[in-house]
Design a protein around this nucleic acid. Structure first.
Length: 853
DNA sequence: AGCACGCCGACT
DNA sequence: GTCGGCGTGCTC
């Protein structure tokens, strides 16, 4: 038996399995998914076992053995290993990168090279060398080094070199000669936390006996024994010390006498340990919820891989349906994964799950420390929980019997990871569910076009899938190779308790300006704010900072500079004072007067939350504002703090960026204002209208969720835009119809798929040449695929044309059908590899990009 | 990615 | 004549 190992080197040349012998002693411990240490060339590396097999594709006589198995249990399940391969082939990343993404950061290897005194030191080597007649007297500096290392036992090579600067070559020589010994260590960044714990070793009576036998001067020791006699349970050493106000030596003394024992005990850092969650019971479902729950639970019970798209208006009670569906899944002895966008993984959300399922729930989100994260993950691995709720990466929870995967707010772009592996959690979920025969529920009040598209009958999909077929070259062809399932649409149109959706007003800010109101609050919103303050009701104000000063708009007529070829707004480029389209490269000079109405009120648009906060203070003296944006929420727990403050009505206004729009539920909020609804709309992105509709619908949904009815004001310079009109009428269907038409007309997703390739280099000429070469090569390769429709746009400069002193050019591939275009892109990129190596050109490939920068 | 092996300039 | 520069190529 041999093991195929993917080693911890994210490079093209090492992106394959390497075969290793499994030493007899490790045979029991090596499994698919094991993390191992292996010799690799002259060094020792971490790797993951991805296959066990009998026939290595390398001379078995030359195979090296695995040196070590790094964990008691494999951190990855075989299905995750298979999924990693699928991820790496679908999203074009090195396989090790995909594997690494599946385990907590704490398990990422830290390589340390340590130096010890070698066995050929002074005593051992003398005779040998003397007999060979060699000069054996060590130089004084060598003696110093050896003494120093001996004193430390073992020392990190870096610290040794910094202690003996400029002795690098001497030290190297000493290693070669065996006076010093190099050992390579692979360390985890984090391990299970251990705490010294004191255990009584006998019954209370015996302890009291011992206490009496102690000499009178050992007052403290007596005290400890009596304490343990009184409560004969293990206690944390630190607790015992502070409890009795004694020092560790006292307890140590007792341990030496054998009167008690001190052991290291593994403890879990439970971030929620100090909180109790009141248990909740399933609520009675509304008839609509009942229907939806029925469909989901039936599928779960039948162990069928099906995908549901649950379209439920804000406040329709999707979470309760999730909770009861999970219960069905648990009743079957299977496990459930719940994904929520990072931003809405609030304590409130956690509370609902912990309240229903208690300590069967693990929570994974980025605000946990690395150690806390590791412990939550460990609970999953050790099967101490059967529900996990978390952000994107929780889809890789090492469960073995997944029955249900829920993706809440499935339209959120944060499900797409922007770093390698650039996976989309929604598509990975479906792949993982296929492996387990599990049910997927995609929930949203504003489903993405991709997901709606998935519900269409195949004929209408024009034979295109949004997630594509897995490549046929997977090591083990499992359920991942099965064809994509069609999504089933479930709908909930009513809010619970028959509460009405809020009334939405569209405010035309052009009119405000023409009537002399230059403030960022329209007269009607101003009045509404006054009204709520007086009634002691609460207000949520949304100001999206994204798009800050990137687009140009006329404040008189609402004209926005658009690309004549692409129907998207142009990006303002500060450096050259030009407007550019980053799809096709079209460029025009920045206008000083509006080309449409000749007004001079044309400018870069954008304003910050800070300014709004100031103005609120001026307009409404005494108003209590909580501002939530990246500046005020970076500190750990601050997010929670602000929300609690607002919940307790210690503020009148919650002002913030997108983070105030998602999933919050405050009974006293009756007014919501979107101050500049256009900011997202004018981003140079074909999804701008979709994002605007989603954002306005979501933020509007914060109002009037309880007894008090809600009201929403949308301030805009483009009140006639269909995304704004549809949002104001709560009319998802008409928005979807229009947007689908737009996408289809322009060959955008979901009708076509995209791959974004970004090349970067320090020098523009070389970069442009490489980009051209790449595009030409890709076009040539694409010809072989005819008649598959494939279009290659660019190369053009990226919207962010330089990052960290590197210029960026991009190409966009638009295609239809299931052909493996990703493979072609990789091939075309490979033809550049020699140039790449020589001149440090980098190529990044994003399959199904969400952000086109 | 490292790290070693291997072939050309400034020093004892 | 050697130490050392970093260009190519391999790692089971």
């Amino acid at each position: 038996m041999y093991a195929k190992v993917i080693v911890d080197v994210p490079a093209k040349q090492t992106n394959r399995g390497f075969d290793y012998l499994i030493p007899e002693a490790l045979r029991e411990w090596v499994a698919i998914g094991s993390r191992v240490a292996v010799p690799f060339g002259p060094r020792k590396l971490q790797g993951f076992v991805v296959e066990l097999h009998d026939r290595p594709d390398f001379d078995p006589a030359k195979l090296k053995p695995i040196s070590e198995v790094l964990d008691l249990y494999p951190p990855l399940t075989p299905d995750l290993v298979e999924l990693a391969e699928w991820v790496s082939q679908t999203y074009l990343c090195h396989e090790i990168t995909a594997l690494q993404a599946m385990v907590p950061g704490a398990l990422k290897a830290k390589y340390e090279r340590h130096i010890k005194v070698g066995d050929k030191d002074l005593d051992g080597a003398h005779g040998d060398l003397l007999s060979q007649g060699q000069h054996t007297l060590l130089l004084p500096i060598e003696e110093d080094i050896i003494e120093f290392v001996r004193g430390k036992g073992s020392i990190e090579i870096g610290s040794l070199l910094s202690k003996f600067t400029s002795q690098g070559s001497l030290i190297k020589q000493m290693i070669t000669q065996g006076q010093l010994l190099e050992v390579q260590l692979i360390k985890d960044r984090m391990s299970a936390k251990k705490v010294l714990t004191v255990f009584p070793v006998e019954q209370p009576l015996q302890l009291m006996d011992w206490a009496e036998q102690l000499p009178d001067k050992s007052k403290k020791q007596k005290q400890v024994l009596l304490y343990l006699a009184e409560s004969p349970y293990p206690i944390k050493l630190s607790d015992l010390l502070s409890e009795l106000n004694i020092s560790a030596s006292t307890v140590k003394g007792l341990a030496d006498k054998g009167y008690l024992s001190i052991k290291e005990v593994e403890v879990q850092r439970d971030p929620y340990a100090l909180r109790t969650f009141p248990r909740t019971v399933p609520l009675t479902l509304t008839p609509e919820q009942e229907v939806v729950f029925g469909s989901i639970s039936q599928a779960v019970n039948e162990l069928e891989h099906r995908v549901f798209l649950l379209h439920g208006v804000t406040g329709s009670g999707k979470t309760e349906v999730y909770l009861q569906s999970i219960q069905t899944c648990l009743d079957q002895g299977r496990e459930a994964i719940v994904l929520v966008p990072e931003i809405s993984l609030t304590p409130q959300m956690v509370e609902r799950f912990k309240g229903r399922f208690g300590n069967q729930v693990a929570v994974l989100h980025s605000r946990l420390s690395q150690g806390e994260r590791f412990d939550e993950w460990r609970k999953i691995m050790l099967k101490q929980v059967n529900v996990v709720i978390g952000a994107r990466s929780a889809i890789f929870a090492p469960f073995t019997k997944v029955g249900l995967i829920i993706i809440d707010e499935e339209h959120e772009s944060s499900y797409k990871q922007e770093e390698s592996p650039k996976y989309h959690a929604r598509d990975v979920s479906i792949a993982r569910a296929a492996q387990h025969g599990a049910v997927v529920v995609l929930g949203s009040a504003t489903p993405s076009l991709e997901s709606m598209y998935g519900t269409l009958p195949e004929a209408e999909q024009t034979q295109i899938g949004s997630s594509g077929n897995p490549p046929a070259t997977l090591r083990s062809i499992g359920n991942l190779a099965k064809p994509k399932v069609r999504f089933e649409l479930l709908t909930m149109r009513e809010r619970v308790e028959g509460r009405p959706l809020p009334k939405v007003h569209i405010v035309d800010m052009r009119e405000e300006l023409s009537e002399g109101n230059r403030s960022m609050f329209s007269r009607s919103l101003h009045k509404a704010i006054e009204d709520r303050i007086q009634k002691k009701e609460q207000i949520v104000l949304l100001l999206n900072r994204r798009g800050y000063a990137t687009f140009v708009m006329c404040r008189s007529c609402g004209y926005v500079a658009e690309c004549p070829h692409c129907d998207i707004s142009l990006t303002y480029h500060q450096s050259a004072k030009t407007l550019r389209c980053h799809y096709c490269g079209y460029t025009e000079r920045e206008a000083t007067v509006c080309p449409s109405c000749s007004s001079e009120h044309i400018r870069h648009f954008g304003t910050g939350t800070q300014r709004v906060e100031e103005e609120l203070g001026k307009l409404f003296p005494g108003i209590r504002v909580i501002r939530m944006d990246v500046d005020t929420t970076t500190e750990k727990g601050s997010h929670e703090k602000w929300l609690t403050l607002f919940r307790n009505q210690q503020a009148d206004v919650l002002l913030g960026t997108q983070m105030v729009a998602k999933g919050l539920d405050f009974p006293m909020v009756t007014l919501v204002g979107a101050l500049a609804a256009d900011t997202v709309l004018n981003l140079p992105d074909f999804r701008a209208a979709e994002r605007t509709f989603q954002l306005l619908t979501q933020v509007g949904g914060r109002a009037g969720r309880h007894e008090l009815p809600g009201e929403v004001f949308i301030q805009t310079y483009t009140p006639e835009h269909y995304s704004i009109i549809s949002a104001s009428k709560h009319d998802y269907t008409s928005f979807m119809d229009k947007e689908m038409g737009f996408r289809k007309f322009h060959d955008y997703p979901p009708f076509h798929r995209l791959i974004l390739i970004t090349l970067s280099h320090e020098q523009i000429p070389l970069l442009m040449r490489s980009a051209e070469t790449f595009a030409a090569k890709l076009k040539e390769l694409a010809k072989s695929l005819a008649p598959v429709p494939i279009e290659i746009l660019g190369p053009v400069a990226s919207p962010i044309s330089r990052i960290k002193d590197r210029y960026r050019f991009q190409c966009m591939v638009k295609y239809r059908g299931e052909a493996s275009i990703a493979g072609l892109v990789q091939q075309a990129a490979a033809t550049l590899s020699d140039v790449e190596k020589q001149y440090k050109l980098t190529i990044s490939i994003d399959v199904d990009p969400q952000v086109l920068m």
